[in-house]
Write a protein that binds this DNA or RNA. Structure first.
Lengths: 162, 162
DNA sequence: CTTGATGCAAAATATTTGCATGCTC
DNA sequence: GAGCATGCAAATATTTTGCATCAAG
């Protein structure tokens, strides 16, 4: 967990720089985001934290405030993967993008060097100093394609309902 | 406006295919999305429609329902450009991605062939049948970089406040 | 005429804010 | 000790839903 210590130091540095305080709550939110790879909504994040730290009580408002802070500092990233609320993930960790299946909702993370590099080039060409980026590709995953096909084979007449 | 007629036909085709109806409201929402290049929140879209069509009354619920429908059909795209609500734009028009300045909020649209192609390649490599994608790059735009620098030059001691 | 669509208002969610109090620094 | 941070609850904002009525096919 050498990485974590590094990120934690980074968080502390940024907080100090802004004259903000390093609190138990901020640490817990940051740590939970780091340790869990998922994509959490503020509400879910709160539940995970409660479950793993029954002794601490964090209000949902603090979760929101901290996530905004972390995002602004570039330490967390907010994604809009689903229709509902925002989801957050650790920002500094190895960056990745998302493939989302519109049929089953599965999320696959990927990293592609060519895309990463090209983004830098594009940003530069507009005079931007790039801070971050996110991209998602939506589509139908292999399993859902297969499932659809076999359904069609079994019952060729069936109209697809919505 | 040859494009619009084409898209409109596409909308009608999809509606018929799903056994849904082509209504004045759906047409207006679709048309407004087409004619205005901006990125609208449902609320804003509603206001624009009201302003340009004072004779028609559209409930906000219809806006939401229609936008979801259009998005599902691949005719509109929802973006999460800012912290607040979702924003929608026409999906079928020439595709583009977004550069967003985190300082001034400016949104620049761009299109990059290399990125587009690479996305297809990535999707394919995971067995995905790609339906759409969206990417945003966040950063600081040229103007804001310059503004910051000149501020620093004028007042080197100033601490950056949040 | 049948069935889906709409507007309205209420309900459900999601997010932000004010404020008294508690904790870092 | 000073001032930011927190929890709580209330306030907002956003999105969805139920239902009577309307309108497209």
């Amino acid at each position: 967990m050498v990485d974590y210590d590094f990120f934690l130091a980074e968080l502390k540095r940024i907080l100090k720089e802004k004259g903000l305080k390093f609190t138990r709550q901020r640490e817990l939110i940051f740590k939970t985001l780091y340790e869990n790879d998922g994509h959490f909504s503020p509400e879910e994040l709160n539940m995970v934290i409660q479950r793993e730290n029954p002794d601490v009580k964090i209000g949902i408002a603090t979760i929101y405030r901290t996530l905004s802070l972390l995002e602004e500092a570039g330490l967390a990233e907010s994604l809009s993967l689903d229709k509902q609320s925002k989801r957050y993930e650790m920002g500094l960790k190895k960056h990745h993008d998302h493939l989302i299946c519109t049929e089953c909702g599965k999320i696959i993370e990927f990293y592609d060097e060519t895309i990463e590099k090209q983004q830098e080039i594009v940003a530069k060409s507009f005079g931007f100093r790039m801070k971050g980026h996110s991209m998602k590709i939506t589509g139908v995953c292999r399993e859902c394609i297969l499932a659809k096909e076999s359904k069609k084979r079994l019952n060729p007449q069936a109209q697809e309902k919505n």
